[in-house]
Amino acid sequence: MAKSIAQEFTKGLWEEIPPFRLVLGLCPVLAVTKTVENGIGMGLATTFVLVCSNILVSSLRKVIPGKVRIACFIIIIATFVTVVELVMQAFTYPLFLKLGIFIPLIVVNCVVLGRSEAFAFKNGVVRSLADGLGIGIGFTLALAALGAVRELFGNGTLTIWETPIQIFGPAFQPFTFMVEAPGAFICLGLMLCLMNLVSSK
């Protein structure tokens, strides 16, 4: 049953990739994936919080009393989220403006609290680090993939870093529905469906 550390890391990339397998953390998945850049930025911010909170929670797991563990998790997570918010404001302000309210909302992201509760509180520091990193990178990949599909069809571009790259050329008529909120739901549904189709084989 015991997985190796490498397995703990890789499970987040496919087996338990958060939005598609655990169907957790959908708020940022739906809200900020209008462009690839937003998706990656949001994913990296979440990864940072996930890794830091996992490390801290697992190293303190002997100290934290069971009855107030959720309160402790929230304090730890909220601290790191605020750190991320301040750092993003200081260094990548345009991205911060685009992500807006969704950065502070990482606090209530089920993925982060879920990993603390379900994994880090029961496992060692190195294991938790691998888990946090894997899940975080999986989350980033999922967001980037969704962002890529939505941006490609909704806008005809791909924005990896600041400047959008035109993919379809000027004759393309953007399918704006994809960058609207209902488009996010339908796109996520189709991707979930595709994942199940691929893995059921």
Binding site: I64, V68, C72, I75, I76, T79, V83, L86
Partner: peptide, 14 residues
Amino acid sequence: VVLTVLSSFSGGLL
């Protein structure tokens, strides 16, 4: 004690 220590650590870091 744990909550207090955590909170003060958090406050200090922030």
